[in-house]
Design a protein around this nucleic acid. Structure first.
Length: 109
DNA sequence: CTCTTGACTGAGG
DNA sequence: GCCTCAGCCAAGA
């Protein structure tokens, strides 16, 4: 095993999979948890490889609770629908009760 | 090795 | 409160 190489992407997937049902987190939160606080973009970039994996990318949004990555999903409102199905209020690509559904890996994991 | 891109974030106007 | 600018880091060409 080469933890030096299998780092970012794999870790992002691990954390993303650990996101509880009906909760969401931000790229920056995951990046910070991984020790790469300034690499929030890489988290999202890593999610590009989440296709075909068990990574609930729809539970990962930006720090504002905005579904920035929805454009990478198939449909136009797929991501929102998934979140709403989990009990997360989403309006116009924006998480409503963000304070209630927000899940911080650094604190809860 | 250099340049570009990107699912971000924070600070400033 | 909204918009714009700059910084950040890693992967791909």
């Amino acid at each position: 095993m080469k933890p030096e190489t299998l780092n970012f992407f794999d870790k992002v997937y691990e954390v993303a999979k650990c996101i509880p049902y009906g909760r969401v987190t931000s790229y920056g939160a995951i990046a910070t948890y991984l020790g790469a606080a300034r690499s929030a973009r890489m988290v999202g970039y890593a999610m590009n490889g989440s296709g075909g994996k068990d990574v609930p990318a729809h539970r990962v949004v930006n720090g504002k609770g905005l579904l920035t990555g929805k454009h990478h999903f198939e449909g136009t409102n797929l991501m929102q629908q998934l979140l709403e199905s989990e009990g997360v209020e989403v309006v116009d690509n924006q998480i409503q009760n963000l304070d209630k559904v927000y899940w911080d890996p650094s604190k809860e994991l």
